[in-house]
Design a protein around this nucleic acid. Sequence first.
DNA 1: AAAGAAACCGGCAAGGGTGCCTGTTTTCAC
DNA 2: GTGAAAACAGGCACCCTTGCCGGTTTCTTT
Lengths: 236, 236
Amino acid sequence: MATTMQQRMLDAMLPADLAAEPERWQQRKSVRTRVRLVEAAIDCLVEEGYSGLTTQKVAERTGSSRGAMHHHFATRMDLAAAVVEHVFYRRMQAFLDDYLSAVAGARDEALFEISTEAYWRSVQTRDYAAYVELAVAARSDSDLERVFLPAAQRFDAVWISEMIESFPQWQARWETMKLVSDFVVTAHMGLMLNLPVIGAKRAALVRRLVARVVALLHAEAAAGILDLEENNPTGL
Amino acid sequence: MATTMQQRMLDAMLPADLAAEPERWQQRKSVRTRVRLVEAAIDCLVEEGYSGLTTQKVAERTGSSRGAMHHHFATRMDLAAAVVEHVFYRRMQAFLDDYLSAVAGARDEALFEISTEAYWRSVQTRDYAAYVELAVAARSDSDLERVFLPAAQRFDAVWISEMIESFPQWQARWETMKLVSDFVVTAHMGLMLNLPVIGAKRAALVRRLVARVVALLHAEAAAGILDLEENNPTGL
DNA sequence: AAAGAAACCGGCAAGGGTGCCTGTTTTCAC
DNA sequence: GTGAAAACAGGCACCCTTGCCGGTTTCTTT
């Protein structure tokens, strides 16, 4: 079942690049260099920011010519769009691999904790750094936003709907699950960006606080105490 | 007393630009155009990102010439450094104004809640958007990082130390106060950046959760229950 | 008022980036 | 095997940005 879910989520985020399995040698070669270019572009993105993601540097990194670059990606934005798709796909892939191997044989009560830790690990990856760069650049580049936002929302939709599908036992507390997910995603992004300023020590404390909030929500939701739609001064 | 604290915090973050009160007309004029240039630079930063912060556009925006630009800021990085200082100063200023007017005559128990709300408001400002842009750009631009990180850490140090100074009644729970502050800063940054993806509705839920966590920490810390240095499975 | 300093102006060369375009080589179809 | 098509190479023109420089105007000093 787990692999089914994994495959379904990955398929939903599959970049157009990799959609069809190529048969002819030419197509294989094409896909290979496209992937190489996108991969180099992600390196640029992480090392030099979105404005450092330039067609020249990418071509140079891969050793291919600017002509080849232009053949696969006519404009810089075409390349950026491919990068967006790949980054989301790889983030999904890496998280699922990590999470599913960590969750193997775990108790139900530990699931939230395990996934929180897996998410924090995923935040520390190169692909997440690229994601942050794109997310911030999209705030002030409407062309990029047109590519980024739909992809981000699709990622979110897949994430939420599969979470719901995977935990039928939480049926009555789906709203809580979504809230926990949003909370974890939100807090960890802020944590990553503030890490250089507040330092590792204080970041670890915040991280523990986040984990405890998640655990508390887990317990309260399991007991059905928490009503998120109303203002209950007694609850959390 | 409140104004004393406010003045002390602002002084600690005062940009070198505005340090000395100018007497001669020439100096006044100089300061005025410097500020105009920095202000225009912040506009560029917010509207087009750090890479859009260009000496040409800034000069054009203010109506002054590139020569004047170069007279006040020899290089692009000089301008960026001035922008960093101004952004932190203005953030501090705006938050203090908002917070101190909101806190006037409030009960002690409501302080955390009031400051959390004030912080969220501060996150929605233009200066905070500029701050985010700088913080992310500094991750991949070591020249900018050399200017940004010290300023950010100074802001943090002033923030924390003044918070401690202002709440002597919390003496025994300063660690909790710092944690609450870090948590609020962290969560709200992540919330702001995820807002376009998750939407206003879910963001509001997360925001309420954050507020409740703060309230809970407030109550627990006031009761002296929470021991942050050890692993207490009973507490939060 | 005259000399000097500070604020301001506009142009120059160099470098880098983008998009496009003409060829060349490799692979595919018939 | 031959023509078509796809992958790849490298050059050209245009634009933007940067840093700097000589020249001009506006204060300030004495």
